[in-house]
Structure formats: structure tokens, C-alpha cells
């Protein structure tokens, strides 16, 4: 696989996206989509919405303690792909996923696998901050409570505090934990949602354009937070902003019309894109 992918040089990269979609699927991906010790690994993933194919044969690995960013123009399927990773697509009528997605070697689309504990292991942060209409404390405590992670109030208090601390929100809200989470500013709400996700001790965190609804200052804080979280979690982030991808991620994957066009070290992708489409996107010719 590896060699095949590398064999495709810049000339084949000039193929149009539709030709790429023609059938060779993942083999068309430029760059090495595998990693040494993957946390999650996806092979030949197709996603269909009814009769419309949204993802076409994508193969991609996510490593331990890395931030993988997914970029690409609107409608390229990067959010759809992200939602496959913890089976959030299950909630959408008529959505069908084929191929294999493995978490620590176990196929998450296996019939016997239960999405509930899966989602406890693979958390997700959404584009628009979506705190529950509850107090800040209850927002963070919600996950531990439903999963029964703590045995008593003291433990729960400690878990809420540590989660809020890790999300960098503790100092700002420690005096008003009983106030509604919806009363916070946009950036604070998003960090609250991150704290909420951390509180159930996931192994992988998926982030779907987490900063698109935030102002630049709040964005900077969240980006810093993502960088810190890398120490303990694997993170996959979908972003619209190439600068953000460059700032926070170690590896970058470029999607186009449902195809994974190119994947590689973030530095390489931005300084030396090997595929024409990647280059066009990065240099701002479309997107």
C-alpha cells in the first residue's frame, strides 16, 4: 500500500477529482495514510446518504497523542467522515457506512458493538457550542452521572473540577458553577463542551470545526487547549481554517468531494503539496 501510494507522483496528481472517484479509491490518496501504532484505523470507508455517496473509499489512521486535522472545501465530506468515527451518523436517517473503522483493533461497525460505550471512548465536540440548558456543573457532571463513573458527590466534584481545569475554564467559572451553561460567552461555552467531553475520560476526541463560531481571541485559547490535550488524547479535528490546521495539528488530511486526496505531515502538506488539488486549495485558488 505504502509503496503504491508513493508511486503516484505529481503527474497523476493532475487527474481530476472525478477521475479519482472513478474507482481506484484509497489507492488514489497521495501520501502515507498509515501510522505505526494507530489508535483508530479506517480502511475503504464509503458513506451513503440514501443513494448519494458522501465518502468514497477513504483509508486513514489516527495515532496516539497526535492531532490530525482534516481540511477541504465545503461539502467535501470531512465532517461526515468525522461523524463516522463515533457512529454519530447513526442518528441520521438513511445513512449507510461500509468498509472498516477500527478502534484499538476492534471494528466499531460490528453488529455486536454497542455505540453507547463507544461514544464514551470517542468523544465529540461540535461546530456550534451546544451546552445543555443546565448549570455549568450539571453540564460537566452529566456524562459521569449517566455512566456512573463516580461513586459519591466528592468524587464527582473533583472530576468536574479537574475537567474544567483541563479545559482551562475553571478559574473563570468556579464561583458560578450553578449558573446556566447557556449564559457563558461563545468561547467559554465551547470550552465547557470540551470539559464535558473530557469528563467521561475518552480516548479519542473528535472536533468538528470547534472554533468556527468563535471570535479570534476565544479561538486562540481553544487552540492552545487542543495542543495541551494532545498529551493525553488522540484528537481528530475538522477545520475550515488552514492556519488553524497548521497551528494545531501534526498531520493533515485533505478531502475533496468525498475523496481523501492527500495526507501527510502538516508541514509537508502546507509547504510542499504533492497533489494539484491540494496545492490549488492551499494556495487559495478555490475553497
Amino acid at each position: 500500500m505504502n509503496t503504491m501510494a508513493e508511486a503516484i507522483d505529481k503527474t497523476t496528481g493532475a487527474m481530476s477529482a472525478s477521475e479519482l472517484a472513478g474507482g481506484i479509491h484509497s489507492r488514489a490518496t497521495v501520501g502515507d495514510f498509515t501510522v505505526a501504532d494507530p489508535r483508530m484505523s479506517c480502511r475503504d470507508v464509503d458513506v451513503w446518504y440514501g443513494s448519494k455517496q458522501a465518502i468514497k473509499g477513504v483509508s486513514l489512521d489516527i495515532a496516539q497523542n497526535e492531532v490530525l486535522s482534516m481540511i477541504g472545501p465545503s461539502g467535501c465530506g470531512k465532517s461526515t467522515f468525522l461523524r463516522c468515527l463515533n457512529r454519530m451518523n447513526d442518528t441520521i436517517d438513511g445513512c449507510r457506512v461500509t468498509g472498516s473503522i477500527r478502534l484499538d483493533g476492534q471494528d466499531i461497525y460490528d453488529r455486536s458493538l454497542d455505540p453507547v460505550p463507544l461514544r464514551a471512548r470517542v468523544g465529540m465536540v461540535f461546530q456550534k457550542p451546544n451546552p445543555f440548558p443546565k448549570s455549568i456543573y450539571e453540564n460537566v457532571a452529566y456524562g459521569p452521572r449517566i455512566h456512573g463513573l463516580t461513586n459519591n458527590r466528592t468524587e464527582l466534584d473533583a472530576l468536574v473540577e479537574s475537567s474544567l481545569r483541563k479545559a482551562g475554564l475553571w478559574e473563570e467559572v468556579k464561583d458560578r458553577l450553578d449558573q446556566p451553561g447557556t449564559g457563558l460567552s461563545g468561547g467559554q461555552q465551547q470550552r465547557l463542551c470540551i470539559a464535558r467531553t473530557i469528563a467521561v475520560s475518552p480516548e479519542v476526541i473528535l472536533m468538528d470545526e470547534p472554533c468556527s463560531a468563535l471570535d479570534p481571541i476565544a479561538t486562540a485559547i481553544v487552540e492552545e487547549l487542543i495542543d495541551e490535550l494532545r498529551a493525553n488524547y488522540s484528537i481528530a479535528i475538522v477545520t475550515h481554517s488552514m492556519q488553524q490546521a497548521a497551528r494545531v495539528s501534526q498531520r493533515t488530511a485533505y478531502f475533496h468531494l468525498g475523496d481523501l486526496i492527500e495526507v501527510g505531515e502538516t508541514n509537508d502538506i502546507f509547504t510542499n503539496p504533492r497533489h494539484k488539488l491540494t496545492e490549488d486549495y492551499i494556495t487559495g485558488r478555490f475553497g
Binding site: H147, G148, L149, T150, A158, L159, S162, S201
Partner: peptide
């Protein structure tokens, strides 16, 4: 709040998922 040394997060992520699995039924 409480003694900051009580930090449940020092436990491995595995522990959390075991708890989750135990309560599933």
C-alpha cells in the same frame, strides 16, 4: 472544592470504559 490530590484522572482511560461497560446492562 475538595482535596485536589484526589484526581480520578490519574487512573487509566481503561478504567473509565470498564465502569461504563459494567453499568450498561
Amino acid at each position: 472544592m475538595t482535596d485536589p490530590s484526589v484526581n480520578p484522572d490519574t487512573s487509566t482511560p481503561r478504567r473509565a470504559i470498564d465502569v461504563v461497560n459494567a453499568s450498561l446492562k
